[in-house]
Amino acid sequence: MRVVVLDTGELDIALALGVTPIAATTPYQVGNFPDYLPLEGIELISLGVVQEPDLERLMTLKPDLILGSRLRHGRLYPLLSSIAPTVFTDKVGATWADNVRLFAKALNRENTAEALLNKIDHHCQQILAEYEIKGRPELSIVRSLQTHIRLYLPDSFIGSVMARCGLQRPSSQSGPGFARRLRSPEQIDLLDGDIVLLSEYSPKQGSLARRWQRTPFWSRLEGHLYKIDDSYWMLGIGPLAVEHILDDLEQIIHDYPIN
């Protein structure tokens, strides 16, 4: 089956279901897929950037199925569905598990999908067991961008993974919503938790957290600080990313001292 995916989330899901797409768009720098995806030896044809996929190239590939999301490519649906059967999820991010089931149905891999989700849930339970032993430390998830710092709330992808595992978040990060932006280090207390997971988005262009680290405010953080990989914690939004995240979490919670 010749499958084309229109975004990284769909690419992650297809690969996790054992389907190798023939073409995909690249979200970041041209021709740059997130590092965590197992793409060695796979020849993926680039369809350009996510905002405007190259439809002519898509058509010459004569795909059997196009996977995408209404959120990103809703306006292109009439054209895409005239090229090949097109399956769109409604949203991306927190709905990743539903998206896996939807695409599995389209790819005829429903059993693979259930096995995959069961494996993830099983892994979650193992982590939760260890987590209970460690006295349920609160996990703060912080992403540093170039000019602001983002705290991820339950409606985000990473928030949904935390909730699925039953891990506890600091009260500053458990209200409804997608994310909260911070600009000023006077709000540094909102970052704190028993465990602080810090991810940096493309630090080559600068990272606000590094500026904050040079100020006396940073010393107010009391939690254990762990650096996490932005490519699967934040950029990747699919089951493969979740598996990597769970591996990291297992290690982090294992290293955390018993209270």
């Binding site: 905002q51 439809l55 959120l71 990103r72 306006r75 292109l76 009439p78 054209l79 991010g93 932006r181």
Partner: peptide
């Protein structure tokens, strides 16, 4: 706003014929 949709809208707003179809 933290809506991801808006990033897509901004491309459309810069004037694109990508989604032009028969209708």
């Amino acid at each position: 706003s933290e809506t991801q949709q808006l990033a897509m809208v901004m491309t459309w707003l810069s004037g694109s014929f990508a989604s032009t179809n028969h209708s």
